[in-house]
Write a protein that binds this DNA or RNA. Structure first.
Lengths: 243, 243
DNA sequence: TCAACATTTTTTCTCGAGATTTTTTGCTAT
DNA sequence: ATAGCAAAAAATCTCGAGAAAAAATGTTGA
């Protein structure tokens, strides 16, 4: 009798499939609204009020919120309900540094272990991202670019065998996306991201780990730099915006 | 008006406080039962059956299980309920490697930034751990040793300013504890853990980062070695142990 | 004997109502 | 006017029952 081949899934690692349950649906909607800023950092999440907005029962919404705690997008305070996780410049610096460390390590392993199929996937993801970047100058299709950018970074480290590193990176990526939205909203694509990606792909295909990780580190850190420039107004969004 | 000083809490980072709600209570009990192996890896977690064992309603237990997904101790499969996260040697290798990387980095930062108070805390934690180790030879008080060992490692990297690294390490530590229980159960303290800890503390207080991280890496990796020796019988616990 | 289908049983998923706790509001006394 | 206390309001937390889905069982046909 063959074993059932139980697949290991850490969190909602690959929520690409359409939501099968109302909990997953509410989880997705809530996550999107938090990442895209419709639900502001620090905001209180009253279950009684939100269950109407998302069209589910109280218990269901509660469960969805519990899942979001896993992603650190929501914090639960003992018996005082849920809140959107607060944002701060210090937090973003932490996210960025941690992400640089993990993603560079993952890239090293990916470069060391990746096969031809992986190289192919990388070229494909890069190509799709480039196409999305062309359309992006119109000001539209930012959703598409964001999604393809996520896939690109995911494929880049796809050959890294460590599920845990990938799991943590997935969490950090979603976290960073919250901040990146703020940055991109005000200065839409200030840097030439395309060239950064291109150089990154080239170094990776050349199996030049040192160069590739250096580019990647700069690439991620640049978003932090961009954020620091609009720090004042951003900080304002953080503080005590009670309800 | 002073700001409310909203404290950032990623997951259930510091669940040291006694559980205030039934959800937290069930969460704790479930986590302990999973880590200590009473709920076996891969085992199906039927809500209808478990709600009686833990004395809570179905919705409450469901929510507790959702929180455990955050710690990757439980996996949820779409519309097919919850399961205890499976275990495998490959997974433990992954956990160990990732933990070594993160904990060494955290230790470096801790050594670079730690002040006198931190040194004091470290000495205190080491002393308490040593006391627990003495009692441990009696075969009792393993719980106490386990707890103090956790605190020791926590204090060791306490001066690291990165909340995210600490958050991830907390998750990995709980994961590793599951495996460590198996290892210690069969060969109770084979290595001289005390001397390892002592050397680690000395190098740390001396601010010798290279030496300290080297010792720490070996220290963590040794548990993996011990585990590999009893791999065969352990693997058996993983597979399709339906129910 | 084995495979495919229909029925039964189990389990998950979802909702609304009631009990506790927290927060707000209003009052009183210094 | 302010601090402290008490009552009211709001929100959270918890539970059990009903609907939907999945797994198990039994049956029929080749």
């Amino acid at each position: 009798m063959p074993k059932p081949k139980l697949k290991v899934v850490y969190g909602a690692e690959t929520p690409a499939a359409e939501p099968k349950t109302l909990v997953e649906s509410a989880y997705r909607d809530l996550r999107r609204d938090i990442i895209e800023g419709r639900l502001q950092p620090g905001e209180k999440l009253r279950v009684e009020h939100l269950k109407d907005d998302y069209g589910v029962g109280a218990g269901t919404l509660r469960e969805a919120l519990s899942l979001l705690v896993a992603d650190a997008l929501v914090v639960s305070q003992g018996q005082r309900g849920f809140r959107v996780a607060p944002m701060s410049l210090a937090d973003f610096e932490d996210i960025t540094r941690t992400r640089v460390m993990l993603e560079c390590e993952a890239l090293r392993q990916s470069i060391a272990l990746g096969d031809d199929a992986w190289e192919g996937d990388l070229m494909a993801a890069f190509h799709r991202l480039s196409r999305a970047e062309e359309k992006l100058s119109d000001g539209e299709a930012r959703e598409e670019w964001e999604e393809r950018n996520r896939v690109f970074h995911e494929v880049l480290i796809g050959a890294c065998p460590s599920r845990w590193i990938k799991h943590f990176l997935s969490i950090l990526y979603h976290q960073a996306e919250r901040y990146r939205r703020l940055s991109l909203y005000r200065n839409p694509i200030p840097r030439n991201v395309h060239e950064e990606h291109e150089a990154l792909v080239k170094a990776t295909i050349d199996r030049n780990a040192d160069k590739a990780t250096a580019i990647l580190a700069d690439h991620i850190a640049l978003t932090l730099k961009a954020m620091e420039q609009l720090a004042p107004e951003f900080i304002a969004a953080n503080g005590g915006n009670g309800a």
